[in-house]
């Protein structure tokens, strides 16, 4: 029973990581841009949700605001700054987006202060449901799993079945050729970036609801999202999904069961801290293993 609950937790965590990683990997795959500010967009989405939900009293309005604001700011940043960086080397991209993190994080601290904000769930999404087998599980976490699944499905259909998806894939394969065929590549890039940013904002709002909304919440998730796309193969949305679920499961199950395992041969208190630390390290060990065996990631094209 405990195992089933932890597996659901891992699934929920993995879905949330997927929302982050999908945007990151699309932006890298299509534009070749490494975007550290993705975590800042996640944070902005969470703040937008907390602010609008607090003002309007409607949680759904908050979610809509998180999507809209993150996508809007994403598009704005792409047009004003990032567009100039596509042709530059990765070092410049890392630095410019690091600078953007500083600006956004400190800006948020300025506006909202240092204290975390909390979101309250609307009645229709709170409480627990009883799953087959008698397991009680929070409804909201199930909703996150559902949202993640729907987004994964929608992205798959978007990329494989629609005209826009064809253009995105064409832009990924050959930028000049796509432009020569009369497709406005700049507009396409802005659109892809805004899409990724919106997903990050949504992820931030959803996680902010479970935990809290505060400055700096985006960076730990950003780094995990990097691990996810390195494991899955940079540029592959399918890889991002597989990597996210793998990382989500490893982290959750490790945190749940390592302390118990360690307690077999050390005092409980140190087994708890040690177990939590080792569980956090486990993800990176997983990544190292994947890199040794397949440097281009699970679903990556030959690097």
């Amino acid at each position: 029973m405990l195992l089933a609950e932890q597996i659901l937790n891992g699934l929920q965590y993995g879905m949330m990581l997927f929302l982050m990683a999908a945007g990151l990997t699309l932006v890298f795959g299509v534009m070749g841009l490494i975007n550290l500010a993705h975590g800042a967009l996640y944070m902005l989405g969470a703040f937008a949700c907390a602010f609008v939900a607090g003002m309007s009293g409607s949680y759904l309005m908050g979610l809509a605001a998180s999507l809209a604001l993150a996508a809007g700011i994403g598009a704005l940043v792409e047009i004003t700054v990032l567009r100039r960086l596509y042709a530059r080397d990765h070092l410049d991209q890392v630095l410019a987006t690091f600078a953007l993190i500083l600006v956004f994080s400190e800006g948020c601290r300025w506006v909202f202060g240092n204290f975390p904000l909390y979101l309250t769930l609307p009645p229709w999404a709170s409480g627990a449901v009883t799953l087959p087998g008698g397991l009680q599980y929070p409804l909201f976490r199930l909703l996150i799993i559902l949202v993640g699944t729907l987004v994964a499905l929608a992205l798959y259909l978007l990329i494989t079945r629609t005209r826009l998806g064809t253009r995105i894939r064409a832009g990924e394969a050959d930028r000049e050729m796509t432009a020569a065929l009369g497709i406005d590549i700049a507009k396409l890039y802005t659109l892809v970036f805004a899409l990724g940013a919106g997903l990050a904002g949504l992820a931030g709002a959803l996680v902010g609801t479970i935990q809290s909304v505060q400055v700096g919440m985006g960076e730990p998730v950003l780094i995990l999202a990097f691990v996810v796309i390195v494991i899955g193969g940079i540029g592959s949305v399918k890889g991002a999904l597989a990597g996210a679920l793998l990382v989500g499961m490893t982290d959750t199950l490790g945190k749940a069961f390592l302390p118990g395992l360690l307690a077999g041969f050390m005092p409980q208190a140190s087994a708890n801290t040690m177990g939590a630390g080792l569980a956090s390290m486990l993800i990176y060990i997983l990544m190292a293993l994947v890199l040794v065996i397949r440097p281009q990631g699970l679903f990556g094209a030959k690097a």
Binding site: F28, I34, H90, I223, V227, I234, Y284, L291
Partner: peptide, 17 residues
């Protein structure tokens, strides 16, 4: 074993470890 963006992210991840 990696290069480019992978190298950036992998060194970052090891530091996190």
């Amino acid at each position: 074993r990696t290069s480019g963006v992978y190298f950036i992210m992998v060194t970052l991840a090891f530091a996190q470890m």
